[in-house]
């Protein structure tokens, strides 16, 4: 701001929100000689150069080695990935395992959000709450989620949601027994800190003049919270959720290596390793990468749609 090149009362800033966000074009921007389309195509090809080189090198090395345990052939992997519903080494399909993993991650993640968001807001808003908890929580922050595994096993063992909810049989038992508390806890720890930190600093970074002007306009504490603070911090909260979900998803393999797990992508990978099916290991890794990227992308869309004001305000 500051060097506005027009006089007051002139046209507002020319902000083409929908035009630039996802690379879509507005009708009046379409240029009929197709130069925009050409440029887009050129960019797409340019961004595919490195993956193509990577796959080619892989192809050549795999052909040279002829040892699928060290490096499987590209076509074997492609076969696995284009038939994701096929049963693999009697462990269910790739899709099925991804689904199980997703449910686990979402449960741990949602629990983390439910606790970390209110805690972060309270710590950001009230100095006393901050001082009360900050030292304690700061001690646990540097501990990698994986380091919790032995302790978590000692606490929860193979206790599952089914045990907790007292479900003993039936369809629900099968689902709930898959959700071991140990796993949920590891994923929870992974997601907790990013969400907490972003909520806390989101509150800290709300511009003071917004709160002052609301007070002068007659806002009570409830108005301030509901109409000023919450909307102002929601971009940081969602950003923290995006990072938290990413970390939670990364904790998946360590969580699914825990005893009592008989499904999930993490388990599929470790089990495939023990039977020397490197192609399944890589297929599992690729699925983890793709699902993680899709989740991240969904959050980005939400951020772009809902919180464009934050990007455009400065």
């Amino acid at each position: 701001m500051g060097e506005t090149p027009y006089l007051d009362g002139g046209e507002p800033l020319d902000v083409k929100r929908s035009g630039t966000q996802f690379g879509f074009m507005e009708p009046n921007q379409i240029n009929f000689n197709g130069s925009r389309v050409k440029r887009f195509g050129a960019q797409l090809i340019w961004s595919l150069v490195i993956p193509a080189v990577f796959i080619t090198v892989w192809y050549l090395i795999a052909n040279h080695l002829q040892n699928p345990v060290v490096l499987p052939h590209v076509r074997d992997l492609v076969q696995l990935l284009i038939h994701p519903a096929d049963n693999l080494i009697s462990m269910g399909s790739l899709l099925n395992n991804i689904f199980v993993s997703l449910v686990r991650v979402l449960i741990g993640f949602i629990l983390a959000v439910l606790i970390a968001v209110p805690a972060g807001i309270a710590m950001g808003y009230y100095d006393s709450v901050y001082r009360l908890f900050n030292g304690f929580l700061g001690m646990f922050r540097p501990i990698p989620p994986l380091a919790w595994v032995p302790l978590v096993l000692a606490w929860f063992g193979i206790t599952s949601m089914a045990t907790l909810l007292g479900v003993k049989q039936g369809q629900w038992y099968i689902y709930l027994n898959n959700l071991k508390l140990s796993m949920v806890f590891i994923i929870f720890i992974g997601a907790f800190y990013p969400v907490l930190t972003s909520s806390l600093y989101g509150v800290r970074n709300v511009r003071k003049v917004l709160l002052d002007s609301a007070r002068v306009l007659g806002a009570n504490e409830k108005d301030i919270f509901r109409l000023i603070l919450l909307p102002a911090v929601s971009p940081s909260i969602v950003n923290g959720m995006r990072i938290g979900l990413g970390v939670a998803w990364m904790c998946l393999v360590s969580a699914e290596m825990l005893p009592g797990s008989l499904s999930g992508v993490g388990y599929l990978i470790t089990h495939a390793y023990t039977v020397a099916r490197t192609d399944i290991v890589i297929a599992g890794m690729v699925s983890i990468g793709v699902v993680g990227a899709v989740l991240d992308f969904l959050f980005r869309i939400l951020e772009d749609k809902k919180f464009a004001w934050q990007r455009l305000s400065r």
Binding site: D8, P12, L13
Partner: peptide, 14 residues
């Protein structure tokens, strides 16, 4: 004319 505009679309004076 700017009822539906957002603050970032306005100049400082506006």
């Amino acid at each position: 004319a700017f009822a539906r505009a957002y603050p970032y679309e306005l100049s400082g004076g506006m």
